[in-house]
Design a protein around this nucleic acid. Structure first.
Lengths: 389, 389
DNA sequence: CAAATTTGCTCGCGCCTAGAACATAATCGA
DNA sequence: TCGATTATGTTCTAGGCGCGAGCAAATTTG
């Protein structure tokens, strides 16, 4: 999806426009036109034409760079203030959030509402209405909607959230024009584009809440499952447990790491996220935290052995476990590695984005669909008559 | 590596030449020029120019199609009989094989020799000499050498084979111009290009001998590890064992599936490959085979849960376990899956290529490096003065 | 044997990018 | 303070590329 690959000389122009616009999106601002020209391997003449065309279509706006270097000052192409917006939706078990992001920018929250959780129609109906309202308010600037959901997603449409009783809910049909993916996968995507996995070849992101999921990231893109349900890394029997998992399998290691593991070990009832955070913060429960961190280390070592990522990032409770119990995690991680990996083991680091990650990932997903010859081409066709500002 | 992506109109020609040549390589023969023209989205005029240029450079030769359809007969572009050759080397613990492959063709064995196994210099020295000899004999047709090795490979250069005492052997330096990868990974690559993983989105290949390795294949390409050592799927503690593994970790499930597991369960000494094959073929040892197959099923289910491949292929002993004990494998595989995966579980099938797979994979690796703008461009530059035949 | 069909071939057109030449606007150095 | 230097934007021409229309060629069909 990131490599376009032109075939005809006509497609070439669109291909290079997309490359330039994508570079602006990735850099946010911060990159000058001359830097972009060089890094994309274009001639100055071509770059001028492309930048002019993007500016004309209100996709970018060039500002003069305040600089200390010699020579004629170059421009800094920035996302245009009237440019495209992606709508990012973070759907959680008890609340949803709608945000809008400009190219290269962070999503800004438009609306956040608690919801009843079940039945699914009572959640998705109002959410669909809210999305429609915001889409209409943002009118021609909106170029796509992407939704992050807290459960396995299949075929880009169907969502399961077992403990809410959601079974094969067709979220895309309910929300109409929308892209859908798992929240952990999208947190990984965000990390790949804007966080610690940026510019890395192969990276592994693990997101821990009640469940343990994530994404394997290759060159900035999550490896997609054949049915869109990859990254369920928590559902492997890595620790010889025979505890049944709500997923239907047995002994999943994610059961011993997630929020419910902390609650169980301290005798609290399950499904209490604030409670889990309390335990994580409470020095009196260090042993419980150490135990979860140790098992996390085992799981990470198994995945590093198998997949050989360059770096592993942790978000959600995973970041907390790493912060509070780095030693236990590191010890079991090292012990589980193959000998030849111990010399240069993949670094295990916390996510750089925190709670914002899922919204960022959703907006990246929406912009990925836009930043293609088809998407940009459609925008250009709609804006080409508009002259320069 | 497969998507080139032209930027200038000059690169466009090379890009399309590579696309066409790659299509011929993938189809072997069997595809007519008009079919290729359509599937590549070219106009007839452009296709004529491209085909002419490739024929002129002795990369393809067009033969007239014997056909029953109406209309003017189209040509069948075949690899040129004087076209490029890839040298594929299968380096095993006790023997090496050198083979040569044409575009789109199977490797033909040139030389096979047993070797002492250790020290590494005594193996690689004569092998390097043999490769050099064959390269010189094939003179200008040879476009690359790729080596499949039976152990983890790091950084594309370093090879470990613990039980032969090979530690961080720089195979590439010893064999000079050569690409190196793990045999299981290359078997997976072969399966992806010429076998059961062909035209699949995400596939998983597992190769079982003494060790259990493989490759995760996305759109025909193995996911590369950050240090080139991905696919060591056997080294995860999936079954609660505490058996130490020669790799340095503990409880690796590959230990209970590979050749040594069969030998151990029947009281035989380890490292006896023919012995393991005997056990696999002997109905008296069905229970032992069932046990290994059952554990294989557990491992596959864990990997399917985590990675969501469309299909899983098995080679080496894995194909034998599937053939001899499909029921035990299937039972534990199903039991280990997450509920929502059981509806359409990834199919588990034997490799379509058998023992030839590693050589095929090595030749694909060598041709992958050639079938790029740089590789084909260099060949064209060397052959452009030569007129048509 | 003629009509129909499919494909190959040739050529002009529009489009694209590179690169050279020039213009512009900053810093540097005396 | 002011020319020299440097880096970049702008303009324009030249060279290439693929498309597509029109025509030629070769086979099947009836």
């Amino acid at each position: 999806m990131r490599e376009t690959g032109a075939t005809t000389s006509g497609e070439l122009r669109l291909h290079n426009l997309v490359r330039l616009l994508r570079a602006v999106h990735e850099a946010g601002a911060g990159a000058t036109r001359s830097e972009l020209t060089r890094s994309l391997g274009l001639s100055r003449g071509t770059a001028a034409v492309l930048a002019g065309e993007l500016a004309n279509a209100r996709l970018i706006r060039e500002e003069i760079a305040r600089q200390g270097t010699r020579g004629r000052p170059t421009g800094i192409p920035r996302p245009h203030p009237d440019g495209p917006l992606a709508l990012a939706v973070d759907l959680r078990e008890d609340v949803w959030t709608i945000a809008a992001a400009e190219l290269g920018g962070r999503p800004a929250v438009l609306e956040r509402r608690p919801h009843p959780g079940a039945p699914a129609e009572d959640v998705l109906g109002p959410l669909a209405a809210a999305i429609r309202r915001h889409r209409e308010a943002l009118a021609p600037r909106s170029v796509g909607v992407a939704v992050a959901a807290p459960g396995p997603v299949r075929d880009g449409r169907l969502l399961d959230i077992p403990h809410l009783g959601w079974r094969e809910i067709d979220v895309v049909a309910a929300l109409q024009p929308a892209l859908l993916d798992n929240d952990a996968t999208l947190a990984g995507l965000a990390e790949a584009r804007r966080g610690a996995l940026r510019a890395r070849g192969l990276g592994l992101h693990l997101h821990i809440e009640f469940d343990l999921g994530g994404a394997l990231i290759l060159n900035g893109n999550p490896i997609p499952g054949s049915r869109g349900a990859a990254g369920e890394f928590g559902h492997m029997p890595l620790i010889g447990s025979d505890r049944p998992c709500p997923c239907g399998a047995t002994g999943c290691w994610g059961l011993e790491v997630g929020a419910n593991a902390l609650l169980r070990a301290t005798g609290r009832p399950p499904q209490d996220r604030p409670g889990a955070l309390e335990i994580l913060a409470d020095p009196a429960h260090q042993a419980v935290v150490d135990q979860a961190a140790s098992i996390l280390g085992i799981g990470i070592s198994a995945l590093v052995n198998a997949l050989d990522p360059e770096i592993v990032t942790l978000s959600g409770l995973g970041a907390g476990l790493l912060a509070r119990s780095a030693e236990a995690l590191e010890t079991s991680y090292q012990a589980g590695l193959m000998d030849f990996r111990r010399e240069h083991p993949a670094a295990v680091v916390p996510s750089a984005l925190g709670a914002e990650a899922t919204l960022i990932g959703a907006s990246e997903l929406a912009f990925d669909a836009f930043l293609t010859p088809a998407g940009v081409g459609a925008w250009l066709a709609a804006h080409e008559k508009g002259s320069a500002d």
